Amino acid sequence: MNAAYEFRVVFFCMGNICRSPTAHGVFRHRLQARGLHDRVAVSSAGTHAYHIGEAPDARSQHHARLRGYDLADLRARQLAPADFEHADLLLAMDWDNLALAEAQCPPEYRHKLRRLTEFCRRHDSPVVPDPYFGGPDDFERVLDLVEDACDGLLDHIERVLATRRLLRP
């Protein structure tokens, strides 16, 4: 990630082909709409190396495209030690992947690990459920939760950035 960014977010799930690239694409689109794309870096990763280098699941791409999000350029990668050091927030899609990341994360960076749904404002779900073995409604549910959480996340980041500006000498 470019050092010029003021804030860095990494979304992660198991394989980085359904939920986390969906969050990546939605958040990237929202950053552009709010004019924060040059201040906030976004990426996504998986806790497992199952799909490294692959594009997001075709169903994820299809449902995202129906809502105006393009995921075609994204490629799966595995969560790396540098992510823990350089990201401001690492956002898990569920409890299992959060636990896996906590086990890998150096203690001094664990405060950066959270669940994406903590930022939801309209939906009440502890996790973004894995749609991989589901149908169209499951992929739509992922988008509903991700859109809601990304809006809340952007509000949070704008507050953090404003506070950082106030604290600068």
Rank of each mutant, 00 (worst) to 15 (best):
R8S: 02
R8L: 00
V9K: 03
V9Y: 08
V10D: 06
G15Y: 07
C18I: 07
T22E: 01
A23C: 10
A23P: 10
G25R: 04
G25D: 03
R28M: 11
R28N: 12
R30E: 14
L31G: 05
A33E: 15
G35P: 11
L36R: 11
D38W: 10
V40P: 05
A41D: 13
A41Q: 07
A45F: 02
T47I: 11
T47E: 06
T47N: 07
H48C: 10
A49G: 10
Y50I: 03
H51V: 02
I52D: 12
D57H: 13
H62T: 12
H63A: 02
L66A: 13
G68W: 05
D70I: 04
A72H: 13
R75I: 13
A76N: 09
P81T: 10
D83N: 06
H86V: 10
A87L: 01
L90D: 00
M93F: 09
M93L: 15
M93E: 07
W95R: 13
D96C: 04
N97I: 02
N97Y: 04
L100V: 00
E102H: 09
Q104W: 02
Y109Q: 10
R110M: 12
R110T: 15
H111K: 08
K112I: 05
L113G: 03
L113H: 06
T117L: 12
T117N: 13
F119S: 05
C120G: 02
R122S: 14
D124T: 14
P126Q: 07
P126D: 12
V127I: 15
V128K: 02
